[in-house]
Design a protein around this nucleic acid. Sequence first.
DNA 1: CTGAAAGCGCTTACAG
DNA 2: CTGAAAGCGCTTACAG
Lengths: 358, 358
Amino acid sequence: MSVGIRDVARVAGVSTATVSRALGRGPVSDAVREQVEAAVRATGYRPNLSARRLRSKAAQTIGLIVADIRNPFFTAVSRAVEDAAYAAGMRVILCNTDEDPAREAMYLRLMEEERVTGVIFAPTKVTADGLRADSLSFPTVFIDRSGLPGAHDSVVLDNAAAAASLVDHLVAQGFKRIGGLFGSTSSTARERQAGYAAAMARYDLAPLARSVAPNAAAAETEATRWLSQPDRPEALILSNGLMLMGAVRATRTLGLAVPKDLALAGFDNEPWTDLVEPGLTVIEQPVAEIGAQAMRLLFERIEHPGQPVRKVTLSGRAVLRSSTRRGGGLVIQCPLARYPAFALPLRPTLGFLPRSLG
Amino acid sequence: MSVGIRDVARVAGVSTATVSRALGRGPVSDAVREQVEAAVRATGYRPNLSARRLRSKAAQTIGLIVADIRNPFFTAVSRAVEDAAYAAGMRVILCNTDEDPAREAMYLRLMEEERVTGVIFAPTKVTADGLRADSLSFPTVFIDRSGLPGAHDSVVLDNAAAAASLVDHLVAQGFKRIGGLFGSTSSTARERQAGYAAAMARYDLAPLARSVAPNAAAAETEATRWLSQPDRPEALILSNGLMLMGAVRATRTLGLAVPKDLALAGFDNEPWTDLVEPGLTVIEQPVAEIGAQAMRLLFERIEHPGQPVRKVTLSGRAVLRSSTRRGGGLVIQCPLARYPAFALPLRPTLGFLPRSLG
DNA sequence: CTGAAAGCGCTTACAG
DNA sequence: CTGAAAGCGCTTACAG
């Protein structure tokens, strides 16, 4: 049947232990290594990874648990995670939770049964808050969202600052009735909401915040309802890219002109946000960097299990486009620039450098 | 250390064989099953899947090999695959090849070493053409692309018909100089190109086809060059969603009005295609259906290894929007309709039903 | 329905 | 540098 290491050993005229060493980084003579490689080729041998994992207790597997791979933010992050994983000789098991704590529990359990090397996880707030430092039997790095302070390594955006910078910008443009529609399930959405509220308070403006499930359909429904009211806001901030798309659809349905009737700003600089008319002001997240940093943290945690918990906070970059331009009406199309950003003083200089690491 | 099946057996007062049966679907008395379950809870036992796989020779793992998960088509398909896999108690190992045959070979080899239950694969043309029916040691279903006729199960779009329907529509709108920019690496792109050429021939029109790497950047570069020429086409068909986005960017850069200066049509009904101005005419693919059908074919192949090779061909649906409206200039925005499609007789009635299955 | 024993295919001390 | 032997943690005939 299937050729095993014993067949290779027989053909090469050595022991299975030697074959194993020749295939790994064990000490073997060059002559023997060549014999073994020839035997592998002759027999078409493929090592059985389940056996290898069982014996060596090294799964060489990373678990990646996200809300939904179809969210472009997670798509991009997961691609970065996979690149780093395969470069390190690891495989990736991908799981979608749909923001459902029951599914999160199921997948965490699967990770235990797989004896994974480590996990990268974007948990719901409910799950994150229930996970103490010793709850998980494998190294874990949270991405996009954080849990109990000091409990787990994490890579997150400076959400409060990013949301505040959007408020700063809108206020500078002269908007006052600035609403915010935030996701209801993640710590990230909460932080963005808090940053929004704090910034509004700084300007003595009343916060107008609502929260819904963080997807396009829910945001569209809620935005349509909200914007139909006579006292609707004159600007709206959305807490992620899916919700921003839902809000755009709502404005189209209601026939609202952006930014004349309603200014729009959000998160995630997805390719379509500068293709729609008007272009949308967004906070760009360093998605590839988030994935890469998460893998770095994970590998370092695996090497030094006892080291202090670390939280890497990355800054977003405000990409200013016409959707937040005061006055509206005269929307200038800037076909030549990829980012037809109009210059504006944005208070904190936002970049992609880690702002804290400790 | 880690608790194993022996610990559970000891606590439950039974043999490890009985624990194994109680946890599986083996025949055990209700009393024993309850004892075992209590022992599992008491010990926090988690079965070691590597050991289980090694012994039972059932990996319960599906390999999913696609060009790039960031291509929304693959994102959607992969989500469907994962849902079906986890529903069947299987895990998914995800691999991105970037259309690189060397990476494809590497991942196929990985699948052998994992002894996967089956693989769902979107191969490049080079790799697909080199894979005979007996080349792979595991059940495989091709998606989006097919290989040698009769060699592998596959789920594909009726690409030629879909491309032809785009030509039919453009011709009906009065366009004559209809160009086509197609991907260079997949059988799918070739079929779309062939369907385009055949349709053009039916109308006695000269085909104007070019091909590039199937990504946004390459398409933008080539489209910019092509559309800068004095004899540029008056309509352009793009062979996937990424390339369509690249073409839109090219028209913006060149200041071309769509559809007045250039009509645009493509594949993949991504959410942004009806958010840009003008809305883009596209062939919508039944993405979830493709993923689900692929899993169905895979499971059936696993159950009946000897059955004849099957090819499921699904039809696309033409979504007509303003980007292909003759005359241009007066582009009417239709904010209320999700699909502001203008009515048009589209020759074949395209739906999502399997057109062939055998 | 239950248990004792063998063994899945590897790697890893342990000797030499 | 190399080999003989043990064993990773399960499941599965084989008996009873």
